[in-house]
Amino acid sequence: MLWNTADGSLIWENELDSEVECMVFSPDGQRVATSGEDYMVRMWDVATGELLAAWEHNSGLDGIAWSHDGTMITTGSAAGNAWLWDGNDYTMRAKLSVGSAKNSLQFTKDDAFLAVGGNIKVQDKKQDKTLYYGFASLINIQQRKVVREYKGMGASVKSLRISPDQQILATGALTIRCDYSILRPGVCCIP
């Protein structure tokens, strides 16, 4: 749904069959890209709501970002990939594998780097369960490789942002702490 911020009126809406996880406007404000649980990226005309393009991924999509110069779109998948797409014809430029899921992505102001955050899935064979650890990484776009890793997140990074001066990276992660001795079976606390 697109809304007029001045008066709250609805500009247009398009109903999809699955959850929309993220959306981003093009730098010129003429298009809006959406992605979500149906594995699809959709490009919409802001003025009319017309579907301009759509393409499928290999898994659900949790993050999307547009480069500041408008030449690239990146999508983050639950399968652990960050995809780089051409911002005009939507052809794939690169597929980058980092972590197990990408929840949040942002280009640096100069579009030379891409910050990605999400989780890394690890199989704990002793406890016979899957554990998820949060991560954030900085990828050099030209070299297509991770140049910095940020550690210490207890669980999945759900959102990250780079400060306007590009000096600080902020991450927001899901952290679950439980004192199981005081809880009933099946009950957990989230601070």
Score class of each variant (00 low, 15 high):
Met1His: 14
Leu2Tyr: 08
Trp3Ala: 02
Asn4Arg: 12
Leu10Ser: 07
Ile11Asp: 02
Glu13Gly: 12
Leu16Cys: 08
Leu16Gln: 14
Asp17Ser: 14
Glu19Arg: 12
Val20Pro: 00
Met23Gln: 08
Val24Arg: 05
Phe25Ile: 10
Pro27Ser: 11
Gly29Trp: 12
Thr34Phe: 12
Gly36Leu: 09
Asp38Gly: 07
Asp38Ala: 08
Asp45Trp: 05
Val46Glu: 00
Thr48Met: 06
Leu51Ile: 12
Leu51Ala: 12
Ala53Cys: 08
Ala54Met: 06
Trp55His: 13
Glu56Gln: 15
Gly60Asn: 01
Leu61Lys: 03
Leu61Arg: 04
Trp66Ala: 05
Asp69Ile: 13
Gly70Ala: 06
Met72Trp: 09
Ile73His: 03
Ile73Thr: 03
Ile73Cys: 05
Ser77Asp: 09
Ala78Gln: 13
Asn81Arg: 10
Gly99Phe: 07
Ser100Val: 05
Lys102Pro: 00
Ser104Ile: 11
Asp111Thr: 13
Phe113Cys: 07
Leu114Ile: 12
Val116Thr: 12
Gly117Glu: 01
Gly118Pro: 07
Asp124Met: 04
Lys125Phe: 14
Lys129Arg: 13
Tyr132Ile: 04
Tyr133Cys: 01
Gly134Ile: 07
Gly134Arg: 02
Gly134Asp: 02
Ile139Glu: 00
Ile139Asp: 01
Ile139Asn: 01
Arg144Cys: 05
Val146Pro: 06
Val146Leu: 03
Tyr150Thr: 00
Gly152Lys: 06
Met153Trp: 06
Ser156Pro: 04
Leu160Met: 05
Ile162Trp: 00
Ala170Val: 14
Leu174Gly: 02
Cys178Glu: 13
Ile182Lys: 15
Leu183Gly: 06
